[in-house]
Design a binder for these strands. Structure first.
Lengths: 277, 277
DNA sequence: ACTTATTTTGCGCTGAATGCAACCAAACAC
DNA sequence: GTGTTTGGTTGCATTCAGCGCAAAATAAGT
């Protein structure tokens, strides 16, 4: 029996080409691939690949280095993705939130960082809900359970700065709070989730995990609030699950499997060596 | 005369569809788009659009909400976009942008030159954000605050040519605008940053500075838009900081610390600009 | 139930993609 | 310089895949 042509031939070819161009690891060095190499790798006619690439270039899907004559992925892809990621986030996240909400039977939220505030984009309530509606509500970063996850990529210096501006200064509790915060964030970096206890803040306890968009930047955080605080071990279990869910959501958003964002290639301090560390 | 078939028909159609899906804002709300709506908007047969979308879905370029039956861009596109040259740039630049954004509490952008348009790669909003999302959006060079920084290495003749093509010709304002532009660009060459006032253009004021890649070529520009225009001196202070940050970013991108690219090898300039500022 | 709105499918017809081979252009060797 | 290798584009006849129309299917109101 013949396979039904789900995808048109031309598109399939184009996608294969793009996929080859995306795979920057096996081929000859970092920047770009030549027509011949691509054709050989795909087992296609050079002429087809040549023509297809010209067409793709005209559309901005690929761009060609004028001197080396090699192709790589183009700005158009970036542009398309960048414009849509925002609105996509909520829709793609919904099933994941629902999954967590039913699994734990706790309120689950999707939050983003806006300035120094955490904005809750959407919430899925638990079954036994008397619940407050948090959608559209902003709270300061330090108050929010999701805050730790959202700041995970920040430089320590910037985090301190932010905390000092927000916490009542001079108090011992502030100092310890600051250290606690940094420890929590280190925990996020290491294990992919944060456990928030009910400390100085009045918000409920909960766990949260960062969600990364296609480029690897933290775009949002999933947070599960916990009403009756359970045992420490239980919280960690939940954390691991939430982290895994956040990771899957990140993949659904287009995050390439390989690198979970900055942290691997720690970039130099943008503030320069001026600040004390 | 026959138009030369630069791009294949199928690809063109697919790109138009993707472009529609990316353009949220005008259509029916934030949700995706239906086959009919897309077909009507493109002036194409519904059947074509339907089939094309199914093919695109099979490739993961678009995805369909199973309940609303509407399409939106898919994970594959984002995954590809993440491996773009631009994406790498964004990742490295992000901490630098965030630094500037919190330092000045103003919207900060990373822009690249694409043809005669300036494409905004990423934006870090200020805390008081009323903010439009500029990511992935292109504006003409002359309209963008970052334009001056991006064109800093161009020959004066080419810049004039570009400006004449863009500005309304014959007007006095155009002439003065052209001279102003060249003066601004000379300022970039000398001091490493540009201050954009609100002149004939409707864009906001701001400062910008060019970012150079490893070869010393201008690869992007950092621009900080300023909402309430502050004093001239304040703008210069900001400019110096932005220029310094751009320089650090350039280093992070692999630019050898010594040579800030073309401009240094211009005229000998014995007047002692060696110290930079 | 009916009616409307929206999407998919069947099917001849036409035009555009295909593959081969010839052609072009650098790069490298001698 | 001449010849050779490697990498890329173009001409052209054949054929197959996409095209549009209209009808069928599906979902959504009423």
């Amino acid at each position: 029996m013949s396979e039904k042509p789900v995808s048109s031939a031309g598109l399939r070819r184009d996608m294969e080409i793009l996929e080859v161009l995306a795979g920057h690891g096996d081929g000859p060095d970092a920047d770009g691939f030549g027509v011949n190499w691509i054709a050989e790798r795909l087992g296609r006619e050079k002429s087809q690949v040549s023509r297809a690439l010209r067409a793709l270039e005209a559309e901005g899907m690929v761009e060609r280095d004028p001197v080396t004559r090699r192709y790589r992925l183009g700005w158009r892809l970036f542009s398309l993705a960048a414009r849509t990621q925002q609105s996509r986030l909520v829709r793609v996240a919904e099933p994941f939130l629902r999954h967590l909400a039913t699994l734990f039977d706790e309120d689950t939220h999707l939050c983003v960082l806006r300035g120094e505030m955490v904005l809750t984009l959407s919430s899925v309530p638990s079954s036994r809900a008397y619940h407050r509606i948090w959608e559209g509500v902003s709270v300061p970063v330090i108050m929010a359970a999701a805050g730790r996850s959202l700041l995970a990529d920040w430089e320590d210096g910037q985090i301190r700065e932010l905390l000092r501006a927000a916490l009542p200064s001079g108090l011992d509790s502030a100092i310890s709070g600051e250290e606690q915060w940094l420890a929590d964030i280190e925990h996020v970096r290491a294990f992919g989730y944060a456990v928030t206890d009910v400390e100085l803040e009045d918000s409920a306890a909960g766990v949260s995990a960062p969600v990364r968009e296609h480029r690897g930047l933290i775009a949002a955080a999933i947070s599960v609030s916990v009403t009756r605080t359970p045992a420490e071990s239980r919280m960690r279990e939940m954390g691991a699950v939430v982290a895994e869910t956040a990771r899957r959501l990140s993949t659904a958003l287009g995050l390439p499997p390989g690198a979970p964002g900055p942290g691997s290639d720690r970039s130099p301090d943008p503030a320069g060596s001026a600040g004390g560390r």
